[in-house]
Nucleic acid binder design. Structure first.
Lengths: 190, 190
DNA sequence: ATTCGCATGTAAAAAGTTACATGATTTC
DNA sequence: GAAATCATGTAACTTTTTACATGCGAAT
């Protein structure tokens, strides 16, 4: 289980409330880990009771108070331990692939419109990532004195993860074009 | 939930026992859907009780008898209904991405060896897919009369799904090289 | 007036994982 | 003699999803 660890990393990057975490898991964190607020609140409570994270009640004006969580020493230790464990092979689940193979027993033509819609979603996601990259990671090539720019490990690592998301979306779009061409070849009528 | 539907598709492609299904989910089906035999047996029992699939006891010599399942009309109808539903956006879960961002608060150098091992796993998976493609889908280019080859929809669709798996592995390998380069840049010592 | 965003939760159901269990045959 | 393959399952546990619930302030 790694939701714990995903939350710990996010809190190390910036302390925040359960609500804020849920938003991060919708946005930037969301392209490699998703979680709903219900899951997050449950895990936060458990981690707090185990002493992995500290809470601080933050009164706000005009808004409900929030509990700001930050990582405590035992939480850091637990994360470190997990980081040194071997990476478990991810288990894949692609509804679309099931549907494509299922289409052989149904109507391949009916899938075309749905794949086109799906392609649109990924196209928008790619645009969103690229916009985020342009915003958060400018510095194309190397303008400016090389040794004057400090290597910020955190930013570099965030960037390489984002590049992974971008590569995934590009690959997916190319594959969806392949899927569409294949489906169209199978239904040349109209 | 789509394990039901994945099983239905697999049974439509070829009827078989729970054990056989579990093996398929380890092999070809496994690159877009995983399931353990426990899950499969549970779902088979439920689908049988709902009349979605038929069972046939097949006595075997030298081996335990098996129950061969095949899709019944209501199962086909249920699958068809599901096929016409919009595709839900997949929720991603990449331990490696969490670890990469977590490495900023730990030891980036320690991740290098683990990423190398992980890269090896994907490299082998790609080789396995390519071997499967060469075995099951020969016919490179177009040798032979074009209109003499019948378009087998099922095979075409299986092939395009496999091409998706291949594209995914290639993209992953390229990204892992990017990750390794980034990690090495951050730890130039030794 | 109603909807949207902030903020936190409970409860129940569905799905997935892990461990245990059995028993025959075939292969090393 | 041990290990691997075939074949099917139970039980307990963990995780995830879905639905419901509340309440305030700000914007339309």
């Amino acid at each position: 289980m790694a939701l714990d660890h995903a939350i710990l990393v996010s809190l190390l990057e910036k302390p925040g409330s359960g609500y804020e975490l849920a938003r991060r898991f919708e946005r930037s964190f969301g392209y490699f880990w998703t979680a709903t607020h219900q899951q997050i609140y449950r895990v936060l409570r458990r981690m707090e009771s185990e002493g992995w994270i500290d809470v601080r009640e933050v009164p706000q004006q005009g808004r409900p108070d929030k509990k700001e969580y930050s990582v405590a020493a035992p939480g850091r230790a637990a994360l470190s331990e997990w980081l040194h464990e071997p990476i478990a092979p991810e288990s894949v689940r692609h509804d679309l692939a099931v549907k494509i193979r299922g289409a052989a027993f149904d109507d391949p033509a009916a899938l075309i419109r749905e794949v086109e819609r799906y392609r649109q979603v990924h196209s928008e996601r790619l645009a969103h990532y690229l916009a985020g990259e342009a915003r958060d990671f400018p510095d194309p090539g190397a303008p400016g004195p090389l040794d004057a720019r400090p290597l910020d490990a955190g930013r570099e690592l965030q960037h390489v993860v984002l590049r992974g998301g971008i590569a995934y979306e590009r690959m997916t779009l190319a594959w969806l074009d392949d899927v569409l061409a294949t489906l169209r070849r199978l239904t040349p009528e109209r």
